[in-house]
Structures are given as structure tokens and as C-alpha cells.
Amino acid sequence: MTERREAVLAAVLALLVEKGAAALTMTAVARSASCSKETLYKWFGDRDGLLTETVRWQASKVRAGAYDRQHLDAGALRESLEGFAANWLSVISSETSVALNRVAIGQAETLGGIVLANGRFAIGERLKGLLLDARNARLVAFDDAEEAFRTFFGLVGRDIQIRLLLGDRFTIDGAAIADDARRAVQQFLALYGATKTPAQAG
């Protein structure tokens, strides 16, 4: 991802926030990003390709953090989970993510799958790697990584995303995000901590 391509994707998100999905044409993006339509078609193929790349770029901002798989301990696990939670909350509460998800909902048959595959599902696979490493280190106990991830996802997000998508105007500052992240991780580890058997955790 070059700086120039990132500038194009940032222009896509800005257009979505300012003018909505109807204004998102290759011509409008080219004008906003100060590049040619030929360049856009060369890089992204078409409008759906451009949106797909935009979703991937936005989702790539949510990471599980860096940790040493061979020396993963309770402190490192908690830090990585809190980092992921805070990162994800910051992304989903941004104007750009709200606009992008509204577009996907409005065009679910074409864009819904793109957002699911490159957003929620891709993010899930990244975090499940950490959860599986934590299970191997006997820090958590679960039978199904997908179910454990869904529980964590719910504890972190609660009703924040749906409220924002439906137009509830509230702001979440850095301190509130950090508090929410700590709370979610504490609750998750209370459910799936290594003192639980997989059956109890389920």
C-alpha cells in the first residue's frame, strides 16, 4: 500500500462521510484524490474493486498487537486483547466506518459480502490466532475459537455500532474507549480464563 493509494482510499472515505454513497463515482474519487480515472481503473478495476480495497484498508487498522508466541503470558495476553478492543472501538466509532457500513447495508446484495469478508471475518481470523496461541499457553480454555471470538466481539462492541448506524449522536473519547476495552477483556477472561474447563467456558 503506497502513500498515493492510501490518499485515494482516504478520499473515498471522505466522500462517503460528506456526500453519501450516491456521490461515490470513479469521476468524483478521481477529482477528490487529484488523479486520473485511468489510474483508478488500473489500480482497482472498478467501483466495487475500489470499495473492496477501501474496506480492507479500514479493517487493517484493527490489529491484535505484537506478542511473542513462544513466551505469551497472562500480562501479554491482557495487553494484546485490550489493544485489539480499543483499536476496534476506535475504528467502528469513526465517521468513516459508520458511513462505510451504511453503504454496505444499503447495498447488501453487492457490498454486504465485501464488508463481511474484508471486515468482520478478516478481523476475526486475526484475533482467533491470538486466542488459539493463548489456549496453547493454557491461559484460556475453549473448544471453539469462533464462539470465543464472537463472545469477545459482543463484549467489546455491545450496542455501540448499531446505535451509531441508526443515527444516535454520541462521542466516545480515548479514555472511554480504554475503559470499555479493559472492562470487556476482564469480562472475557472471567468467562474463558484457564481456571475454567472448556465445557464451563462454553
Rank of each mutant, 00 (worst) to 15 (best):
K37H: 03
I123W: 05
A33L: 03
L72P: 06
Y67A: 05
I114G: 03
Y67E: 06
K37I: 13
T54Y: 01
R120C: 02
E125V: 14
T39G: 02
S36C: 04
G49V: 13
A122R: 03
F142I: 04
L50A: 11
E109M: 10
A122P: 04
A137Y: 13
Q107V: 00
V55M: 06
C35V: 14
L100C: 07
W88H: 07
F44K: 01
G49R: 05
G124D: 11
G106D: 12
S97F: 10
Y67G: 05
A85V: 13
A74Y: 00
G45N: 06
K42N: 14
S97T: 14
Y41I: 12
D143V: 09
N118L: 11
A85R: 00
L116N: 10
L40P: 11
Q58D: 07
L89D: 01
A108Q: 05
G106R: 01
A86T: 01
L127H: 01
T96H: 09
L81A: 04
K128C: 14
L130P: 12
I105K: 00
R126D: 14
Q58P: 01
Y67F: 13
A85F: 09
L81Q: 08
I105T: 09
A86V: 03
G112V: 09
N118F: 14
Q107C: 02
R31E: 15
A134M: 04
L40K: 02
W57S: 15
T52P: 01
S94R: 02
S32A: 15
L127A: 02
L111A: 03
S93M: 09
F44W: 08
T54P: 03
S32T: 12
R102H: 02
V29Y: 00
K37T: 15
A74I: 07
F121A: 13
L51P: 06
N101R: 08
V140R: 01
V140S: 05
W88T: 01
S80G: 04
